[in-house]
Every structure is written in C-alpha cells, then in structure tokens.
Amino acid sequence: MSYFSDIYNGIKTLLTGMSVTGKYFIHARKGSLTQQYPDNRETLKMFDRFRGEVVMPHDENNEHRCTGCQKCEIACPNGTIEIIWDRGIDEETGKKKKKIDKHIYHLGMCTMCGLCIEACPTDAIVWAQNYENSVYDRTKLSKVLNQPGSKVKAGIED
C-alpha cells in the first residue's frame, strides 16, 4: 500500500512547492528584488559607514588635517598608502616641521579594511561613499589625496 501513499505524498509535496513559487509569481511585480542599477543612481544612497574609498576632506581654505605622521602608512597591510613628505620651516615658529608633499592612495591595492582610518590620530582621512570605482586605466587608481596647494590646518599637530 505504500506504493500508492508514496505517489500521493510525492504529488502533495510537489504541489506544496509549486504553491510557494506560484505565490511569488503572482506577487512578482511588488516583491521584485532587482535594483535597476544605472537608472537609480540618483536615489541610490550608500550607508554612512560604507567603505567606498579613502579620501582626505579639505575645508574651504583648502586646508586638510594630515600632519604626515605616517601612522596610516604603517597601519596599512597592503602598502596602499604612500606618503611623500618633507621638512619645511614653519613661518610662525621658525621651527623645522614635517609636512606632506603628496599623500598617495593606491585604490587598486586597497582591501577596505579601515585600519588606516582607525590609526589616524587627527581624522585627516575618512571613508567616502563613492561606489563607482572602476576605471579603464589602472594608473588612474593611484590617487593623490591632498589637493594641490593645500596645507595643514593650524593647530592640528599638538
């Protein structure tokens, strides 16, 4: 008799499975998970903490907060950050002082681990929510984070 109960149970479970997919078929329009990506660029907003790429914010006076302490460079596991620095003479005090020339960030090597941002004592670098990082040329992935002609904001070092 198990022969027929097998058939009955088999058909029953198959119909149960079909009812699940059938339910979603009927609600297909509402329940669709797909995002139409390039079309929804305007409305697509990343979360605040989303790790897109590392940037160095500059204020309106073209001043950043990086002192060139190289803690981020040391913290980075992949050699993503390169800081080219120089000792310049501070106008006010006349003392010799570390000053960044270029804060180079190789996006192509970055694993978005966030250790550099954790390590930065002055919050000079932060995460940007930019998620469209692909370029046609690999050299474009190496970026200089400090803008040309920028300088350190006063009072950061201490």
């Binding site: 990343m46 979360f47 605040d48 903490r49 989303f50 790790r51 694993t111 978005m112 681990c113 966030g114 250790l115 954790e118 995460w127």
Partner: peptide, 15 residues
C-alpha cells in the same frame, strides 16, 4: 552589516 561595519562581505569589524 553594511550599515554597521561599512562592508557587506569582508567586514573587518573586529580588532
């Protein structure tokens, strides 16, 4: 995860 850690897959949230 993305909202809290900033990444969806490779979160690196622990130190």
């Amino acid at each position: 995860f993305e909202e809290t850690c900033g990444a969806r897959l490779t979160m690196n949230y622990n130190i």
